[in-house]
């Protein structure tokens, strides 16, 4: 793993659709983005979907939300724990950024905001240190599900051969 992944030369992007995306739309979009070369890492962001009712008289009953489904991205099954509200990613340069924008324009059925900024920490934070300890993979910096457990492998590596 190279240190370049936490390099400031990379660009970070956010795709922010005007509506929350259905799992099918999210799957199509993520597949197209995963096919682009030059996307280093990304995560989806949105309201969490609980497996069971968290409080009230129905506490503990299964929810079976249609958004809580398994999508297939780059040949790997990923369980969606959130309703996709935005996608944040790191790409290598401005060309890839334009390719991502084209994919969004083709696939998103709703209007969207597309912006460049700082969305994933580039340096190790206290949280990263607490979760992964010293000498953690720089690729994993900031890729933390605040409510997930590391043992559940919340981070999915789609193209492991390219990380070598």
């Amino acid at each position: 793993m190279s240190e370049a992944f936490s390099d400031t030369n990379t660009l970070q992007l956010e795709i922010f659709p005007s509506r929350l995306l259905k799992p099918e739309t999210a799957q199509n979009l993520l597949n197209e983005i995963a096919d682009l070369s030059g996307v280093i890492r990304l995560f989806v962001h949105g309201p969490r979907l609980p497996q069971t009712v968290p409080y009230g008289p129905a506490t503990g009953m299964p929810v079976n939300h249609p958004g809580n489904t398994v999508i297939e991205v780059g040949g790997q099954a990923i369980e969606l724990a959130v309703y996709v509200g935005s996608i944040r990613m790191e790409v290598i340069d401005a060309d890839v950024k334009e390719q991502v924008r084209e994919v969004c324009e083709d696939l998103l059925p709703v209007s969207f905001e597309f912006r460049e900024g700082n969305f994933i920490p580039r340096r190790q934070t206290v949280t990263d240190y607490a979760k992964r300890g010293p000498g953690a993979d720089p690729m994993m910096i900031g890729m933390t599900d605040p409510k997930g457990k590391l043992k559940n492998h919340p981070v999915c590596i789609l193209k492991p051969e390219k990380d070598e």
């Binding site: 659709p17 005007s18 509506r19 929350l20 995306l21 259905k22 739309t25 309201p47 969490r48 979907l49 609980p50 009712v53 968290p54 409080y55 009230g56 008289p57 129905a58 929810v63 079976n64 939300h65 249609p66 958004g67 309703y83 509200g85 059925p109 709703v110």
Partner: peptide
């Protein structure tokens, strides 16, 4: 119970987000 959703963007089908469906 579980009222989350009023301030979120609407899902694609236009029905306000409800985490309990």
């Amino acid at each position: 119970a579980t009222v989350h959703g009023h301030s979120l963007r609407l899902p694609e089908d236009g029905v306000m987000f409800d985490m309990l469906d």
